[in-house]
Amino acid sequence: MDAQVVQILQLTLNGISIGSIYALVALGIVLTYKATEVLNFAYGDILMMSAFIGWGLIVVAGIPFWPAALITILIAAMLGYFLDRHVMRTIVGQPQFAGVMLTIALAFMLRGLVSMGFGPTSRSYPTPWTGHITHIGPIVVTDLNLVILAAALIVTALLFLFLRYTQLGVAIQASSQNQLAAYLCGIRVKRLNSFVWALTAAMAAVAGLLLAPIALVDISLWFVVLKGLAALVLGGFGSIPGAILGGLLIGLIEQFAGVYLPDGAKEMSAQLVLIGVLIFWPRGLLGEAHGRRV
Protein backbone atom coordinates (compact mmCIF):
# COMPACT_ATOMS: atom_id res chain seq x y z
CA MET A 1 0.00 0.00 0.00
CA ASP A 2 1.03 3.57 -0.59
CA ALA A 3 3.08 5.03 2.25
CA GLN A 4 0.93 8.15 2.26
CA VAL A 5 -2.26 6.15 2.77
CA VAL A 6 -0.67 4.08 5.49
CA GLN A 7 0.38 7.21 7.29
CA ILE A 8 -3.11 8.64 7.08
CA LEU A 9 -4.63 5.41 8.41
CA GLN A 10 -2.07 5.31 11.18
CA LEU A 11 -2.76 8.89 12.18
CA THR A 12 -6.51 8.26 12.08
CA LEU A 13 -6.21 5.33 14.42
CA ASN A 14 -3.96 7.20 16.85
CA GLY A 15 -6.26 10.20 16.67
CA ILE A 16 -9.33 8.14 17.47
CA SER A 17 -7.53 6.51 20.36
CA ILE A 18 -6.41 9.82 21.90
CA GLY A 19 -9.72 11.34 20.97
CA SER A 20 -11.62 8.71 22.89
CA ILE A 21 -9.88 9.87 26.06
CA TYR A 22 -10.84 13.45 25.25
CA ALA A 23 -14.36 12.18 24.63
CA LEU A 24 -14.42 10.55 28.08
CA VAL A 25 -13.26 13.80 29.65
CA ALA A 26 -15.83 15.81 27.71
CA LEU A 27 -18.51 13.30 28.65
CA GLY A 28 -17.75 13.68 32.35
CA ILE A 29 -17.83 17.45 32.17
CA VAL A 30 -21.04 17.57 30.18
CA LEU A 31 -22.80 15.15 32.55
CA THR A 32 -21.92 17.33 35.54
CA TYR A 33 -22.93 20.41 33.61
CA LYS A 34 -26.27 19.05 32.52
CA ALA A 35 -27.21 17.65 35.90
CA THR A 36 -25.90 20.37 38.20
CA GLU A 37 -25.31 23.38 35.92
CA VAL A 38 -21.75 23.63 37.19
CA LEU A 39 -18.89 23.61 34.73
CA ASN A 40 -16.34 21.46 36.50
CA PHE A 41 -12.92 23.05 35.98
CA ALA A 42 -11.52 20.65 38.59
CA TYR A 43 -12.20 17.68 36.34
CA GLY A 44 -8.69 17.58 34.94
CA ASP A 45 -7.28 17.63 38.45
CA ILE A 46 -9.48 14.76 39.62
CA LEU A 47 -8.16 12.88 36.59
CA MET A 48 -4.57 13.79 37.42
CA MET A 49 -5.02 12.83 41.06
CA SER A 50 -6.44 9.42 40.09
CA ALA A 51 -3.44 8.81 37.86
CA PHE A 52 -1.19 9.48 40.86
CA ILE A 53 -3.29 7.25 43.10
CA GLY A 54 -3.07 4.53 40.47
CA TRP A 55 0.71 4.95 40.35
CA GLY A 56 0.90 4.76 44.13
CA LEU A 57 -1.14 1.56 44.25
CA ILE A 58 0.66 -0.17 41.39
CA VAL A 59 4.26 0.88 41.89
CA VAL A 60 4.53 1.70 45.59
CA ALA A 61 2.02 -0.74 47.06
CA GLY A 62 2.72 -3.38 44.42
CA ILE A 63 -0.91 -4.25 43.75
CA PRO A 64 -1.62 -5.83 40.34
CA PHE A 65 -3.12 -3.59 37.68
CA TRP A 66 -6.78 -4.64 37.72
CA PRO A 67 -7.46 -4.46 41.49
CA ALA A 68 -5.45 -1.25 41.65
CA ALA A 69 -7.56 0.27 38.87
CA LEU A 70 -10.73 -0.74 40.66
CA ILE A 71 -9.57 0.74 43.96
CA THR A 72 -8.52 3.96 42.20
CA ILE A 73 -11.92 4.30 40.58
CA LEU A 74 -13.64 3.76 43.93
CA ILE A 75 -11.43 6.31 45.66
CA ALA A 76 -12.11 8.85 42.90
CA ALA A 77 -15.85 8.24 43.15
CA MET A 78 -15.75 8.80 46.91
CA LEU A 79 -13.71 11.96 46.38
CA GLY A 80 -16.28 13.22 43.88
CA TYR A 81 -19.15 12.50 46.25
CA PHE A 82 -17.33 14.20 49.10
CA LEU A 83 -16.50 17.30 47.05
CA ASP A 84 -20.09 17.79 46.02
CA ARG A 85 -21.59 16.95 49.40
CA HIS A 86 -19.36 19.19 51.46
CA VAL A 87 -18.18 21.88 49.06
CA MET A 88 -20.34 22.39 46.01
CA ARG A 89 -23.60 21.97 47.93
CA THR A 90 -22.88 25.06 50.01
CA ILE A 91 -23.28 27.31 47.00
CA VAL A 92 -26.40 25.80 45.47
CA GLY A 93 -28.58 28.57 44.08
CA GLN A 94 -25.80 31.11 43.69
CA PRO A 95 -24.87 32.53 40.29
CA GLN A 96 -23.01 30.33 37.85
CA PHE A 97 -19.87 32.38 38.34
CA ALA A 98 -19.62 31.17 41.94
CA GLY A 99 -19.64 27.58 40.68
CA VAL A 100 -16.83 28.32 38.22
CA MET A 101 -14.76 29.96 40.94
CA LEU A 102 -15.34 27.17 43.43
CA THR A 103 -14.34 24.45 40.97
CA ILE A 104 -11.23 26.44 40.09
CA ALA A 105 -10.47 26.67 43.81
CA LEU A 106 -10.95 22.91 44.13
CA ALA A 107 -8.66 22.42 41.15
CA PHE A 108 -5.94 24.47 42.83
CA MET A 109 -6.31 22.59 46.10
CA LEU A 110 -6.15 19.18 44.44
CA ARG A 111 -3.15 20.24 42.37
CA GLY A 112 -1.44 21.64 45.45
CA LEU A 113 -2.15 18.48 47.46
CA VAL A 114 -0.83 16.23 44.71
CA SER A 115 2.35 18.20 44.24
CA MET A 116 2.85 18.33 48.02
CA GLY A 117 2.27 14.61 48.32
CA PHE A 118 4.15 13.34 45.29
CA GLY A 119 6.56 16.08 44.27
CA PRO A 120 7.14 17.50 40.82
CA THR A 121 8.82 14.51 39.16
CA SER A 122 6.96 12.59 36.47
CA ARG A 123 6.62 8.83 36.68
CA SER A 124 5.07 5.93 34.87
CA TYR A 125 3.57 2.59 35.81
CA PRO A 126 3.39 -0.70 33.94
CA THR A 127 0.14 -2.01 32.53
CA PRO A 128 -0.56 -5.49 31.16
CA TRP A 129 -0.29 -4.01 27.67
CA THR A 130 2.82 -1.85 27.94
CA GLY A 131 5.24 -2.53 25.10
CA HIS A 132 2.98 -4.84 23.10
CA ILE A 133 2.05 -3.97 19.55
CA THR A 134 -0.46 -5.32 17.07
CA HIS A 135 -0.29 -5.29 13.28
CA ILE A 136 -3.55 -4.55 11.50
CA GLY A 137 -2.64 -4.90 7.84
CA PRO A 138 0.15 -2.39 7.24
CA ILE A 139 -0.69 -0.33 10.33
CA VAL A 140 1.19 -0.76 13.59
CA VAL A 141 -0.79 -0.06 16.75
CA THR A 142 0.31 -0.23 20.34
CA ASP A 143 -2.00 -2.42 22.35
CA LEU A 144 -2.48 0.42 24.79
CA ASN A 145 -4.19 2.47 22.12
CA LEU A 146 -6.57 -0.39 21.37
CA VAL A 147 -7.32 -0.85 25.05
CA ILE A 148 -8.01 2.85 25.40
CA LEU A 149 -10.42 2.71 22.51
CA ALA A 150 -12.15 -0.38 23.88
CA ALA A 151 -12.39 1.02 27.39
CA ALA A 152 -13.84 4.28 26.12
CA LEU A 153 -16.41 2.37 24.10
CA ILE A 154 -17.36 0.21 27.08
CA VAL A 155 -17.68 3.17 29.44
CA THR A 156 -19.78 5.07 26.94
CA ALA A 157 -22.04 2.09 26.30
CA LEU A 158 -22.48 1.43 30.01
CA LEU A 159 -23.27 5.08 30.59
CA PHE A 160 -25.84 5.03 27.81
CA LEU A 161 -27.53 1.94 29.21
CA PHE A 162 -27.42 3.39 32.71
CA LEU A 163 -29.00 6.69 31.71
CA ARG A 164 -31.59 5.02 29.55
CA TYR A 165 -32.74 2.01 31.49
CA THR A 166 -32.12 2.42 35.21
CA GLN A 167 -34.30 4.38 37.56
CA LEU A 168 -31.34 6.40 38.77
CA GLY A 169 -30.32 7.24 35.21
CA VAL A 170 -33.79 8.43 34.30
CA ALA A 171 -33.83 10.48 37.49
CA ILE A 172 -30.58 12.13 36.39
CA GLN A 173 -32.10 12.96 33.02
CA ALA A 174 -35.19 14.38 34.69
CA SER A 175 -33.25 16.56 37.07
CA SER A 176 -31.02 17.78 34.27
CA GLN A 177 -34.09 19.02 32.42
CA ASN A 178 -35.73 20.75 35.34
CA GLN A 179 -34.44 20.44 38.88
CA LEU A 180 -37.52 21.88 40.56
CA ALA A 181 -39.94 19.65 38.67
CA ALA A 182 -37.73 16.65 39.39
CA TYR A 183 -37.72 17.56 43.07
CA LEU A 184 -41.50 17.79 43.10
CA CYS A 185 -41.65 14.31 41.57
CA GLY A 186 -39.83 12.95 44.58
CA ILE A 187 -36.28 12.87 43.23
CA ARG A 188 -33.74 13.85 45.87
CA VAL A 189 -31.97 16.33 43.64
CA LYS A 190 -29.12 17.24 45.99
CA ARG A 191 -28.18 13.65 46.65
CA LEU A 192 -28.51 12.96 42.95
CA ASN A 193 -26.07 15.78 42.18
CA SER A 194 -23.56 14.26 44.57
CA PHE A 195 -24.06 10.95 42.86
CA VAL A 196 -23.42 12.54 39.47
CA TRP A 197 -20.19 13.97 40.85
CA ALA A 198 -19.19 10.52 42.06
CA LEU A 199 -20.04 9.00 38.69
CA THR A 200 -18.12 11.58 36.69
CA ALA A 201 -15.15 11.40 39.06
CA ALA A 202 -15.07 7.64 38.48
CA MET A 203 -15.06 8.32 34.73
CA ALA A 204 -12.21 10.78 35.27
CA ALA A 205 -10.33 8.03 37.06
CA VAL A 206 -10.82 5.69 34.10
CA ALA A 207 -9.59 8.36 31.72
CA GLY A 208 -6.65 9.16 33.98
CA LEU A 209 -5.63 5.52 34.32
CA LEU A 210 -5.75 5.17 30.53
CA LEU A 211 -4.00 8.42 29.75
CA ALA A 212 -1.17 8.05 32.25
CA PRO A 213 0.58 5.09 30.54
CA ILE A 214 0.84 6.97 27.25
CA ALA A 215 1.49 10.44 28.67
CA LEU A 216 3.37 9.94 32.03
CA VAL A 217 1.99 10.48 35.49
CA ASP A 218 2.58 14.19 35.88
CA ILE A 219 0.96 17.30 37.35
CA SER A 220 0.46 18.64 33.83
CA LEU A 221 -2.07 15.88 33.12
CA TRP A 222 -4.77 18.33 34.22
CA PHE A 223 -4.30 20.22 30.95
CA VAL A 224 -6.45 17.54 29.35
CA VAL A 225 -9.46 19.38 30.75
CA LEU A 226 -8.81 22.10 28.18
CA LYS A 227 -8.94 19.52 25.39
CA GLY A 228 -12.18 18.26 26.89
CA LEU A 229 -13.64 21.76 26.84
CA ALA A 230 -12.63 22.20 23.21
CA ALA A 231 -14.28 18.86 22.42
CA LEU A 232 -17.45 19.96 24.21
CA VAL A 233 -17.63 23.21 22.35
CA LEU A 234 -16.96 21.60 18.99
CA GLY A 235 -19.57 18.92 19.57
CA GLY A 236 -22.13 21.35 20.85
CA PHE A 237 -22.24 22.34 24.50
CA GLY A 238 -24.67 20.30 26.55
CA SER A 239 -25.01 17.45 24.09
CA ILE A 240 -23.81 14.00 25.13
CA PRO A 241 -23.35 12.54 21.62
CA GLY A 242 -21.75 15.85 20.68
CA ALA A 243 -19.18 15.45 23.45
CA ILE A 244 -18.11 12.06 22.10
CA LEU A 245 -17.99 13.24 18.50
CA GLY A 246 -16.13 16.40 19.48
CA GLY A 247 -13.58 14.43 21.48
CA LEU A 248 -12.82 12.12 18.60
CA LEU A 249 -12.56 15.05 16.18
CA ILE A 250 -10.20 16.98 18.47
CA GLY A 251 -8.00 13.88 18.74
CA LEU A 252 -7.91 13.53 14.95
CA ILE A 253 -7.28 17.23 14.36
CA GLU A 254 -4.38 17.15 16.81
CA GLN A 255 -2.75 14.13 15.17
CA PHE A 256 -3.07 15.50 11.65
CA ALA A 257 -2.02 19.03 12.65
CA GLY A 258 1.11 17.55 14.22
CA VAL A 259 2.19 16.03 10.89
CA TYR A 260 0.82 18.23 8.14
CA LEU A 261 0.93 21.69 9.74
CA PRO A 262 3.94 23.71 10.90
CA ASP A 263 5.66 23.17 14.22
CA GLY A 264 3.55 24.11 17.24
CA ALA A 265 0.22 23.62 15.48
CA LYS A 266 -0.39 20.42 17.43
CA GLU A 267 -0.28 22.18 20.79
CA MET A 268 -2.40 25.08 19.60
CA SER A 269 -4.98 23.25 17.49
CA ALA A 270 -7.44 22.48 20.29
CA GLN A 271 -7.44 26.09 21.47
CA LEU A 272 -7.81 27.41 17.92
CA VAL A 273 -10.74 25.10 17.31
CA LEU A 274 -12.37 26.23 20.56
CA ILE A 275 -12.05 29.92 19.75
CA GLY A 276 -13.06 29.49 16.11
CA VAL A 277 -16.13 27.41 16.85
CA LEU A 278 -17.34 29.70 19.62
CA ILE A 279 -17.02 32.79 17.45
CA PHE A 280 -18.37 31.54 14.17
CA TRP A 281 -20.58 28.66 15.15
CA PRO A 282 -21.53 28.74 18.82
CA ARG A 283 -24.04 25.91 18.42
CA GLY A 284 -21.37 23.38 17.56
CA LEU A 285 -21.97 20.18 15.66
CA LEU A 286 -24.85 18.64 17.59
CA GLY A 287 -25.70 21.38 20.05
CA GLU A 288 -29.12 22.73 20.75
CA ALA A 289 -29.70 26.43 20.31
CA HIS A 290 -28.77 28.04 23.57
CA GLY A 291 -30.25 31.23 24.74
CA ARG A 292 -30.64 33.01 27.99
CA ARG A 293 -33.73 33.64 29.99
CA VAL A 294 -34.39 37.22 30.88
Partner: peptide, 25 residues
Protein backbone atom coordinates in the same frame (compact mmCIF):
# COMPACT_ATOMS: atom_id res chain seq x y z
CA UNK B 1 7.77 17.37 55.10
CA UNK B 2 5.20 20.03 54.18
CA UNK B 3 7.36 23.10 53.81
CA UNK B 4 9.88 21.52 51.45
CA UNK B 5 7.20 20.78 48.85
CA UNK B 6 6.36 23.45 46.35
CA UNK B 7 2.63 22.79 45.96
CA UNK B 8 1.84 24.58 49.22
CA UNK B 9 1.32 27.93 47.50
CA UNK B 10 -1.16 26.54 44.98
CA UNK B 11 -3.04 24.79 47.77
CA UNK B 12 -3.30 27.95 49.87
CA UNK B 13 -4.50 29.95 46.85
CA UNK B 14 -7.24 27.40 46.27
CA UNK B 15 -8.17 27.23 49.94
CA UNK B 16 -8.52 31.00 50.28
CA UNK B 17 -10.58 31.23 47.09
CA UNK B 18 -12.85 28.40 48.23
CA UNK B 19 -13.38 29.94 51.66
CA UNK B 20 -14.26 33.31 50.18
CA UNK B 21 -16.67 31.86 47.61
CA UNK B 22 -18.37 29.78 50.28
CA UNK B 23 -18.50 32.14 53.23
CA UNK B 24 -17.95 35.70 52.03
CA UNK B 25 -19.07 36.11 48.41
Amino acid sequence: SISSQFGLETFVFGLILALFVMFEP
